[in-house]
Amino acid sequence: MANTYIQIGSTVTIGSGGSSTIDFTSIPNTYTDLILVMSGRLTTSGYDGTPWVVGAISLNGTVIASGKLLFGTGSASGSDNNAQAAFISDTDATANTFSSMSMYLPNYQSSNNKSISLDVVTENNGTASLLGLQAILSTVTSAITSITLTSNGSGAFAQYTTAALYGIKNS
């Protein structure tokens, strides 16, 4: 039986100049599900002093706009109707620490809204960290051919941020 967990394209590694976006384009229709993983950090400080900021995820150019966030920070927990996704470590996080994110998008070729499971952590051995579980619903009903991660602010993805996309086949 064939291996069904296959990398699509190449791993994106951000260079010294930084980048405000990470794009995966021309995603083939040969898989059933997609998994996107990112090790990320931004070049800016968040607005509230926490060591994380929100990024944005777009499917086929449409920013995801609906989600339920369940979070813990080490001192508090809660839930939010968070319309944005992909929390990323910022410059308030301990130096050289990068957040980790895993996003699972099943049936990406379907004509339904897309339901996404996303887990993220920004552990940095500091006074606060964020562990987030997100249930995301995208209104995009066409087959997904592109995914874009955006730093969503004045900063950029820092050098050594990496992202990789994998395809899963159910047959």
């Binding site: 609906s66 339920k68 369940l70 839930s79 579980l133 997100q134 249930a135």
Partner: peptide
């Protein structure tokens, strides 16, 4: 497990 729908994010 993880569950995701329009009402909840759940583990």
């Amino acid at each position: 497990s993880r569950g995701n729908n329009g009402a909840y994010a759940i583990a």
